[in-house]
Amino acid sequence: MDSRRLPSPDDLLILLTVARLGRFNAVAETLGTTHTTISRRILALDKQLGGRTLERSPHGWELTQLGASAVEAAEAIERTLGSLSGLISQDQSALAGLVRVATTDGVGAVFVTPSLVRLQQQNPQLNIEMLSATRKVSQNRSGVDLEIVVGRADVSTAQTIFLSNYYLRLYASRGYAAQQGLPETLDDVGQHAFVSYVESALQVAELGPRWSSQLPTPRTSFQATSVFAQVEAVRQGAGIGLLPNFMVGDREDFVPVLPGEFERQLPIWAVARPESLRSVRVQAVIAALKDEVKKRSVLLAG
Rank of each mutant, 00 (worst) to 15 (best):
L168N: 06
L66K: 08
G190H: 05
D291P: 02
V137M: 02
S8L: 10
G82E: 00
A28M: 12
D154R: 13
S279F: 07
L182P: 02
F222K: 05
S3K: 13
G241S: 04
L170F: 09
R264I: 14
A178S: 03
G151R: 03
V107E: 06
G260V: 00
V248A: 11
W61F: 07
D91R: 00
R135V: 14
A229N: 14
Q179R: 14
S212G: 05
E199R: 12
R40P: 04
A301T: 15
G22F: 04
V155I: 12
G239P: 05
D91S: 05
D253N: 14
Q230M: 14
N25E: 15
F254C: 04
L45S: 03
L116E: 00
V257I: 05
T185C: 10
L45D: 00
L87I: 03
L258H: 10
I286Y: 09
V99S: 01
N165G: 06
G249F: 01
P256K: 08
S196H: 11
T157Q: 11
I42V: 11
S138M: 11
A70R: 03
T160F: 01
L207I: 12
M130R: 12
T80F: 04
K136E: 03
A28G: 11
S8W: 12
V198I: 12
R281N: 14
L13K: 13
F194S: 07
G51N: 03
L243K: 08
K47D: 10
L66R: 08
R100E: 06
V149T: 15
G97V: 03
F111L: 08
Y167T: 14
T113G: 05
R41T: 00
Q65V: 08
